[in-house]
Design a binder for these strands. Structure first.
Lengths: 219, 219
DNA sequence: GTCTATAAGTGGATAGAC
DNA sequence: GTCTATCCACTTATAGAC
């Protein structure tokens, strides 16, 4: 814990252990990586790792916390959201897409998302982090947004909870496709393909939710 | 391999090993379950298991093959699909939903889907099975169905590939939600909730794709 | 077909010299 | 802070008695 900060370009041993662990865990999963292997990657003996981290679990924990810190730094404020809804709903969907994909595919966080995807089965903390961060809180947020859009007459009337699921389920599908089924550490191709699909999806939703001239809007 | 079949109600030792493995693997994952543990569950020594299965991997393999066999038994024929499209598109979506959920939540297969979800990171065979069975082949099939629906004028014109993703991504979202994030071996609640959500989704899609009276259908 | 005994290996973690 | 040496629990799998 002594030389945790290092303002120069060089990395401390602790930081090198962190980086090596992120690389190895994201490739093989937590259980399949041994302390010996991490040590080898860093260039020290495994016993020396215990001078920097209490045990193997502590390394994983610090990785999770790093992602949580990183995510907290993003996200739009309530006022920015309100303004965008009135100004231009098309833009809003596009910004929403980009926001989501950035949180996923930032080079600092992409490997960590992959680690958590692998470990979600073995770790209760990760599981509840996922449920909250990927299921409940975004869908609640989108329900809120769709409700506001209806009040302003920007989209037609529909059950906002259903719309929230319609919109955000597609993001989860992309997450599932890339982080679970097709992950291969090829960062740029993830962004490119996912972004195009997300735009197609936004357009479909916009088209479906357009306010019509006639009166028979409510189902 | 000797007493594999047993027409009476009793299970052979091999079958009991199979069942115990499915239970344990679905709860803890393949790596986290030892041969000792399986033996304990069955009531024999771990060394005796090797009289029935060559090794631990062979147990997993037989579990995967069991699911593949089971899935092959379902699925509609081309003619049945064509008939349904003309007769009643609403019904078709409902049947499509039920078909998918049945393949997932049949009591014989639900635990196996869970095992594969856990093991998809460690096993190339499972990974390509998932990519094919959950991503590519269903989306191609739905693209085909939407194309036919357009030709018959049952739905409005739109890129069928995009529609296929719009429709099927929701099924994958449900898979992700239940088998990865919220799995708790509670079979009936999965079916109930997933089915309701799937119906909401089908209704939204139908509404969006309704043929309108006027002429400006193509985007 | 099941048992005991055992091989042969890998894992995380600690003690103490330097 | 890193090293060597070591501990001990646990794993898959095999050999051979019964």
């Amino acid at each position: 814990m002594k030389n945790e900060k290092n303002s120069k370009g060089t990395l401390t041993t602790k930081e090198r252990i962190f980086e090596a662990s992120v690389d190895l865990f994201s490739q093989k999963g937590f259980d399949a990586v041994s302390m010996r292997e991490i040590g080898r990657e860093v260039g020290i003996r495994e016993s020396s790792i215990y001078n920097h981290y209490k045990n193997k679990d502590a390394i994983l924990e610090s990785i999770i916390n790093h992602l949580i810190d990183e995510l907290g730094a993003y996200s739009l404020t309530e006022e920015e959201i309100d303004k965008l809804i009135s100004d231009c709903p098309e833009m809003f969907f596009e910004i929403g897409s980009r926001e989501f994909l950035n949180g996923m595919s930032n080079p600092n966080t992409e490997k960590i998302w992959r680690i958590l995807s692998i470990e979600v089965f073995h770790n209760e903390k990760i599981k509840s982090f996922f449920v909250n961060e990927l299921l409940e809180s975004p869908i609640n947020q989108w329900e809120n947004i769709f409700t506001k859009m209806m009040k302003k007459g920007v989209i037609k009337e529909y059950d906002p909870r259903v719309l929230a699921r319609e919109y955000f389920s597609f993001a989860l599908y992309l997450f599932f496709e890339y982080f679970i089924l097709k992950y291969d550490a090829n960062y740029s191709s993830f962004m490119d393909m996912a972004y195009k699909k997300m735009i197609d999806h936004s357009n479909f939703m916009l088209e479906s939710l357009k306010v019509e001239n006639s009166e028979n809007l409510k189902l």
